[in-house]
Design a protein around this nucleic acid. Structure first.
Lengths: 180, 180, 180, 180
DNA sequence: CATGAATGAGTCTTCATTCAT
DNA sequence: TATGAATGAAGACTCATTCAT
């Protein structure tokens, strides 16, 4: 599939080697076919980002479900571990996509996955609102996501072992949510 | 000056419009002159990154000095405000440079500014070590920097007002450092 | 055809005017098409050299066949005349290609044409070995080729009439082979 | 000296690295100074060629003088050896210069060295005219020079040992001159 | 005279996109 | 619908040459 080929190219060769001809070749289709499905390269990248965000959403959803009935810490730990795990499989790809997402934000038609992710986190926090130092609002959720994503990325850049990274990320998130 | 022209191009036109001909034109020199001073485009970008990191270092140094004799919170607040301020002037440029830095990390000859920044933060934290929930080590410093940079970036992306952003960033950093 | 266009450019404008844009224009295709068929300029030049050597081989083969059953002198005369004739059609081109061949020798993948040419000459000399002053070995063959090529080139540089040139070249080759 | 620097650049880096800035740097002067002495790059190359031809002339003159009173074979052997020797010191340079000479022939003002070389050879051959198979004329001289130069070049390209090369070259020249 | 920074035309090469088959 | 040859604008970089100091 074309999107999958694009993902592999981005992962193995980086933005440098990310061109439509390489993608078509890797996908085993002609360059013309790529343009049959996507009006231009950015649209393909946006599809890639969409997949990425939907996958992220699913991972978090599962992680939260897994830690259901447990306290906030366990839920957060479950999420962080899952994210580290998921990121680990495609660290470079994810990092590049986050960068590309920024460039393409203006032309992104669909934020539903990202929105749903926020809703999910908001629900989790609200459920445990008594453990938090303050009220739950959109900003808090945004901040948590920003912190976790940045730290997961950093962990992969500096090649920190997962357990240690999870511990530090958890400390940051909990600290942010609970301190004072 | 060529580096300044490169900065302005990057800021106004993004990576898309960042090409050597545009830089030369903006700098008011010929393309040949650009290559008299920089062996290639990446070298120019690296110079830009070097400037950026040195500026960052100076800002933090000044912010810490300004809040000398005060408690940790005041120092951190001073730093965060200064960073928001500095970033504010060239938000897009700085964000792009952070991305480019990653791509060019392997060919970066000089990390002294970044190292010194870490030393500075480490010293600050050590000075206030009694206020922290744990020992000061290199990981803690890395994490603080990662969190602050990510949140400052995010604040500019979502166009949050400085005071509110400063407050949230401070909460994250203090939470990370002090909680349990 | 692109290779033919390259040949014509090289012939009419020399190495000076031999650039990919000119080649594309002369071939009536876009510059992109040139790079669809050849990974870079040198590869195109190598194709040109390959053609040149194959053509040379064919000419010599035919010349030898034509003078079959005759004595060595007639065979050599036939070859020299054929070479003068062939060279005559594209004197400048051939001379430049010989120069470029030297520069590109290290990246030349295929020497089969050149090798076959040597085999052909070796066979001819061996057939007439009784007429020679010494044994036939690879060095003799190399020398014959060097002498003939140099003298053919020189003949065209000084614009000597073919019959006279053929006579002098023949004298050199026969002298080399038969004297003492 | 500038011409010497140009020679060294050509020898060590080939035509690829032969540019005025490199020459100036190697000569330890500014690029401006190069243009003080030579109106353009080709003029510098022509000076180089002039030196080369004068040196060649001197070598041959000395070689002939050395073998004075001896027979033709000894004189030729002396010349061939001297040329192999001289070429050996700057094989690549000489080969490139011969190529450049061709390109610049039209703008070469001074052929006196080359002419004198021919005169020298003509005199030598005339002196030994009884040993030759035919009369001495300008063509014979040209041919001898063409043959010797081509074979000396070839010897260096295929890295043949000097004595063996000298022997083969001598055989070619003598064969040309004496056969029949 | 010497300098060397500045020039800019020119060259190779890439790659997103189109369109005839 | 699929193909992939063709397109050509655009970009990185070179280097002979000039000229103000």
């Amino acid at each position: 599939m074309i999107v999958e080929a694009a993902a592999r190219i981005l992962e193995t060769r980086g933005l440098e080697g990310y061109n439509t001809n390489a993608i078509a070749e890797r996908a085993g289709v002609s360059i013309g076919s790529v343009y049959q499905y996507f009006p231009n390269k950015d649209a393909l990248t946006l599809a890639l980002i969409g997949n990425f965000e939907r996958e992220l959403l699913e991972i978090v959803r599962t992680a939260i479900a897994t830690a259901d009935r447990r306290d906030l810490r366990m839920s957060l730990k479950s999420i962080v571990r899952a994210l580290l795990d998921a990121h680990g499989r495609r660290a470079r790809l994810n990092r590049i996509l986050e960068t590309e997402e920024e460039r393409l934000r203006q032309s992104m038609p669909d934020h539903s996955a990202a929105d749903e992710l926020k809703t999910l986190i908001a629900a989790l926090l609200t459920k445990h609102r008594t453990e938090l130092s303050g009220a739950v609002d959109a900003d808090i959720v945004d901040d948590v996501l920003v912190i976790v994503r940045a730290m997961v990325d950093a962990a992969f850049r500096s090649e920190v072992a997962h357990p240690a990274a999870a511990c530090r990320i958890l400390r940051a998130v909990e600290g942010y949510l609970r301190w004072h």
